[in-house]
Simulated assay, not measured.
Amino acid sequence: MKQKLLLSFFALLLLPLTMFGEGSKQLTPNRSTAGLTDPANDKVGYLAHDANFPSASGVAITSLSFLKPAGFSRNGATFSADHRLLIRVKNGERLMYGVRRAIHDQTTSNQGDLVITVRYAASSSDVAGTIARQTTLLRNQSSTRQMLLNTNQAGVIATPAQALAGPTFTQSGTTRNSGGYTPLLITNNTGADRDYWVEFTQVGEANMSDGQLFSVYDLWDFTVIDGTGTEKPGRMRSKL
């Protein structure tokens, strides 16, 4: 069963929209050459966070605490567990994931290295969550405002074709999804089915401006694989 997922559209304005899907492979494969105003385009739905500019800027607070850790607060947007992006991973299953950070024009300053943290609640009182994996993806310092990520690292999707193929992995000695991206990987070996959530931060973000914090991803994927190597769709959801 496919679940709801909030995306922010980044074209001329940021507009919240509730969609269905697992990642950009299903929602916005980004393979069409059509312009952004053409109904045939397939690339305007970007995953976004930190779109929480001051009201005086004329841009609405749209991201709230989506993809942000517990305790987050910025320009009137405060943390809520209801804003989390959740992925259901049963005991023994694997979560494979990756992103491509895109360039935007909402700042003239550089962005930082991206930190992706995946957590789960070890108990009902574990609000902040227990870290399952935390990875720092290095920025491409030669790219515009250092917004792109280096492609020679696990967890970075280099092309739409890689996103379409999905995560490359080995199952019983056989390569699956050849031509895909090299994913970051978590195996749920906790002994229980878990709802994992994802947090996106930047190195040094405590001293960053609103424009530096704002980030968009035109390619992104969160895939759950069971013990036989079968993809399990419909595991991603968010209330926001």
Score class of each variant (00 low, 15 high):
residue 49 H to W: 09
residue 207 N to T: 13
residue 168 T to P: 01
residue 47 L to P: 00
residue 112 G to W: 01
residue 167 P to D: 00
residue 113 D to W: 04
residue 45 G to A: 11
residue 171 Q to V: 12
residue 238 S to R: 06
residue 20 F to D: 02
residue 170 T to E: 12
residue 90 K to G: 15
residue 52 N to W: 04
residue 16 P to H: 07
residue 158 A to I: 01
residue 141 Q to I: 15
residue 3 Q to V: 03
residue 165 A to T: 14
residue 90 K to P: 12
residue 150 N to T: 13
residue 106 Q to M: 13
residue 103 I to S: 13
residue 58 G to S: 13
residue 150 N to W: 03
residue 65 S to K: 01
residue 14 L to P: 04
residue 148 L to T: 05
residue 112 G to K: 03
residue 95 L to I: 09
residue 88 R to H: 14
residue 57 S to H: 04
residue 85 L to D: 09
residue 26 Q to M: 07
residue 92 G to V: 02
residue 131 I to H: 10
residue 153 Q to M: 07
residue 203 V to C: 07
residue 24 S to W: 08
residue 224 V to Q: 02
residue 199 E to M: 10
residue 200 F to C: 11
residue 182 T to C: 06
residue 132 A to I: 01
residue 222 F to N: 01
residue 212 Q to G: 05
residue 214 F to I: 10
residue 130 T to N: 11
residue 100 R to I: 00
residue 57 S to M: 08
residue 237 R to D: 00
residue 66 F to C: 01
residue 224 V to R: 00
residue 152 N to Y: 05
residue 164 L to K: 05
residue 158 A to K: 04
residue 58 G to P: 04
residue 123 S to D: 13
residue 119 R to W: 01
residue 136 T to D: 08
residue 188 N to Y: 05
residue 150 N to I: 10
residue 159 T to H: 05
residue 120 Y to H: 11
residue 114 L to N: 01
residue 19 M to H: 06
residue 239 K to M: 06
residue 200 F to Q: 07
residue 232 K to W: 03
residue 93 E to D: 15
residue 89 V to D: 07
residue 194 R to E: 15
residue 69 P to C: 06
residue 102 A to W: 02
residue 103 I to W: 06
residue 92 G to A: 14
residue 86 L to T: 10
residue 169 F to E: 01
residue 228 T to Q: 14
residue 124 S to C: 03
residue 208 M to P: 00
residue 77 A to T: 09
residue 185 L to W: 00
residue 150 N to Q: 14
residue 167 P to M: 04
residue 178 S to P: 04
residue 184 L to Y: 01
residue 130 T to Q: 14
residue 15 L to K: 09
residue 146 Q to E: 14
residue 9 F to M: 11
residue 204 G to F: 05
residue 210 D to V: 12
residue 205 E to V: 00
residue 73 S to E: 11
residue 146 Q to C: 14
residue 109 S to C: 05
residue 75 N to T: 13
residue 5 L to I: 15
residue 181 Y to T: 03
residue 51 A to Y: 07
residue 222 F to A: 05
residue 55 S to T: 15
residue 57 S to W: 04
residue 237 R to W: 02
residue 143 S to G: 12
residue 82 D to N: 14
residue 125 S to D: 15
residue 171 Q to H: 11
residue 49 H to V: 03
residue 107 T to D: 09
residue 174 T to N: 11
residue 8 S to M: 12
residue 237 R to V: 02
residue 152 N to S: 14
residue 29 P to A: 06
residue 209 S to A: 10
residue 228 T to M: 10
residue 47 L to T: 01
residue 219 L to G: 02
residue 50 D to P: 00
residue 184 L to W: 00
residue 212 Q to F: 03
residue 73 S to P: 00
residue 23 G to V: 06
residue 92 G to M: 14
residue 175 T to P: 05
residue 161 A to N: 12
residue 18 T to M: 04
residue 144 T to Y: 13
residue 240 L to D: 02
residue 177 N to W: 02
residue 34 A to G: 06
residue 88 R to S: 12
residue 90 K to H: 15
residue 66 F to W: 05
residue 2 K to H: 09
residue 210 D to F: 02
residue 2 K to C: 04
residue 67 L to P: 00
residue 149 L to C: 08
residue 5 L to N: 02
residue 8 S to H: 09
residue 111 Q to L: 09
residue 172 S to M: 10
residue 82 D to I: 08
residue 3 Q to Y: 09
residue 101 R to D: 03
residue 29 P to K: 09
residue 21 G to R: 00
residue 213 L to V: 06
residue 115 V to R: 14
residue 108 T to F: 07
residue 182 T to S: 15
residue 177 N to P: 00
residue 179 G to F: 12
residue 96 M to H: 08
residue 109 S to T: 15
residue 153 Q to T: 09
